[in-house]
Simulated assay, not measured.
Amino acid sequence: MAGWYRGDCHVHSVYSDGELTPAELATAARAAGLDFVATTDHNTASAHADWAEQAGDGLLVILGEEVTTATGHWLALGIGPGEVVSWEYGVLDGRIGPRLDQVHRTGGICVAAHPHAPYPSGTFAYAYEGFDAVEVWNGLWTSALPWNADNEAALAEWGRGLAADVHRGRWRPAVGNSDAHLAGQLGVPHTVVLAEGLSTPAVLAALRAGRSWIAGSASVDVSFTATAGAETAEVGGCLDTRGREVVVRARVRGVPYGTVSFHTERGAVHHAELSPEGLGEVEWGTTATGSGFVRAEVRDLRGHMAALTNPVVLS
């Protein structure tokens, strides 16, 4: 059934360096209100069979791997059972292309993980060309705070490239994942997708197309649309404005005293405050000549990210 589904696509178990078993993680995922998770242990598929036993009862399990190379990590999502993607190389070896092709041949997607992670091999040195999405929000180092400088840098880098990417007709969506290793981390943050159904092909297609937004927790809900006349496009969509005025609208729940901002190729173009209850609807007007795309950010009272969306493209 088509709808919005919440999921965490960067999860570690005892099969690499996590502290929880797949069964414990599956229980935590259901408790956190997630509809899907991806198994992404480092450089191994040894957890795949165990994870397959946890699927069902409203939880989709996407088979994957965190490919931990010498000069950056990336997520191979949607690979086959027991399939391993090689990791023994760095950016100067020029060997990543065939590995991306391997994932794409199975119908999977490749995600650049935590591009500004502050540890050896964590910083992403590869070009984004060939990757399907960028993990701009990673929760591993945010146990005390939901947002940090590494995520801010990843978001800024991705945001700066959107205008050129939209202009050439192929932009890379943003995703957010917990990178859970410890109990209590799963789902903080996670990605909410508009998919044709709760299946691996449908969820990966939604992630690839950018029909998604990132939530800091299950208590946060965002609706983001752009409307011109009788036509409306949701996040990740393209609105044919036909020269008409565009009304951009965000509806937010779960961010008390928060702030909503709209962003285009000109940077932040509109700000509004949410109520003490965290509810609000924000509108802003523009045109396709004034904005090639619009995306939204929602920050809490401290200025930390609570949610962010992929863009709606205006044509």
Rank of each mutant, 00 (worst) to 15 (best):
S219T: 14
A250F: 03
L162F: 00
P81G: 02
E88Y: 10
G107I: 04
P115D: 02
G278S: 07
E297T: 15
Y5G: 01
I96G: 00
H167I: 06
A38H: 03
A55G: 14
R244G: 14
P115A: 04
H181A: 14
E83G: 01
Y15D: 13
T40K: 01
T309A: 11
A47I: 05
V85W: 06
V91W: 09
C9Q: 08
G169V: 08
V84L: 14
T106Q: 15
W213M: 10
G33H: 10
W213Y: 15
V134Q: 05
P81C: 09
E281A: 13
F36S: 02
V166K: 02
G292F: 03
Y15I: 08
V269A: 07
V111K: 06
C238F: 10
T191P: 01
L75Q: 07
T106Y: 11
G303L: 09
P115V: 04
F124H: 00
A250Y: 01
A117L: 00
A149K: 10
V14I: 15
A45H: 03
A209H: 02
G64Y: 08
Y128W: 14
A250R: 04
L59D: 08
V252W: 05
M305E: 12
G169W: 04
G94D: 04
P311K: 01
L77Y: 06
E234Q: 15
H271T: 15
A26L: 05
F131Q: 07
A45T: 06
R249P: 00
V37Q: 07
V282D: 03
G139L: 04
A288N: 10
T287I: 09
A183E: 15
A153G: 01
V298P: 03
